[in-house]
Design a protein around this nucleic acid. Structure first.
Length: 320
DNA sequence: ATGTGGATCCGCCAGG
DNA sequence: GTCCTGGCGGATCCAC
């Protein structure tokens, strides 16, 4: 049941990206406190490796780790201005060919690109490298604005902290909202970028001038009722046009998309932690009807609310 | 499955 | 000249 995660380190590694993957996956715990991922860092040559920040990293396993990995994560590395060794490319492709998945953080996307895993697919990378990626690999549909992109067996993320978002997303997809939220809390990361409720609870400082954070917090408390841009704009005391513009600037997404993402998270939370009917949960999370909730589940999670609950609900007797 | 009315989004532009 | 605002129109998306 424990999934094997290999973190593939290449010369002149970005240490932060490595740490993201290692911390996130090795922090995830099941209901009994057991590790859900077995994380191992590897490199083309076992042993040690240079980072971009002066020090070296030691104790890395060899590429044979890839042969038994369910997931391979590639952090950024400066050496990726050139294609990695053939054995690295073969290893990456091998993971996907065996039904595993390949994940990249930041410029690690280049490794997946060199391996041909991104041809005909959407992908993202650090904004600073997006143009170079698109130029070098015309068959890849590069989206420089996305935080991360899920193409099923291949997932890519933008720079640095977007790697945290992606790892949390994967954990949440594998093991449900609750396990993801626990990892986020342990890492003191936002459970979902600019989403989730915990980050707004007992906010110590007043929101910065002009910020819409207070309106988002209010929206989170009122997800069950119909919310439209006009209503939110009125609460922010600006025109709908200005509200929409600021919203995108602050969150990187549009009001409706954000709202739907928050409602989906709430629905997942309720499915995992309560026995409420799907209909009740649909109403409580603001989807209005069970069919609407089902449609959103199908589109975003490729599953149904009932199947989701069966997979992720806390075992009976486990405290909520 | 398809259509329809309404909301949303986004480029554009004028005004402060 | 610059930045931000807010209104308009059309394409698109969404819910029913």
């Amino acid at each position: 049941m424990t999934q094997r995660v290999a973190v593939l380190c290449l010369e002149r590694l970005v240490a932060f990206d490595l740490a993201i993957a290692v911390e996130a996956f090795s922090t995830a715990r099941g209901p009994g406190g057991e590790r859900l991922y077995d994380v191992e860092a590897c490199a083309p040559q076992p042993g040690d490796l240079a980072t971009t920040t002066g020090f070296r990293i030691a104790g890395l396993a060899g590429l044979d780790v890839l042969d038994r990995a369910d997931t391979v994560v590639v952090p950024a590395a400066r050496s990726l201005t050139e294609p990695p060794a053939q054995a690295v490319l073969d290893g990456l492709r091998g993971v996907v060919d065996r039904g595993g998945r390949a994940v990249s953080i930041c410029a690690g996307t280049f490794a997946l690109a060199y391996a041909g895993l991104l041809d005909g697919r959407r992908a993202t990378t650090h904004w600073e490298w997006a143009d170079a990626l698109a130029a070098a690999f015309p068959r890849i549909d590069v989206d420089p604005d996305a935080l991360y992109i899920d193409e099923g067996e291949v997932l890519t993320s933008a720079g640095l902290s977007a790697g945290i978002d992606l790892c949390l997303y994967i954990i949440r997809r594998d093991h449900g909202e609750r396990v993801g939220a626990d990892v986020a809390r342990a890492m003191v990361a936002a459970p979902h970028r600019d989403g989730g409720q915990a980050q707004f609870i007992e906010r110590a400082l007043p929101s910065p001038e002009g910020s819409l954070a207070a309106v988002r917090a209010w929206a989170l408390e009122n997800l069950a009722q119909p919310l439209d841009v006009a209503t939110l704009a009125r609460r922010a005391a600006v025109s709908p046009r200005t509200f929409a513009r600021r919203f995108v600037a602050e969150t990187g997404t549009t009001p409706l998309k954000w709202l739907q993402a928050q409602r989906l998270l709430e629905a997942r939370r309720l499915l995992e932690r309560t026995d409420l009917s799907v209909e009740r949960i649909a109403l409580a999370s603001g989807f209005g009807s069970a069919p609407s909730l089902r449609e959103h589940f199908r589109r975003s999670l490729a599953t149904t609310p009932t199947a989701y609950r069966r997979a992720f609900a806390a075992a009976p007797g486990v405290a909520a």
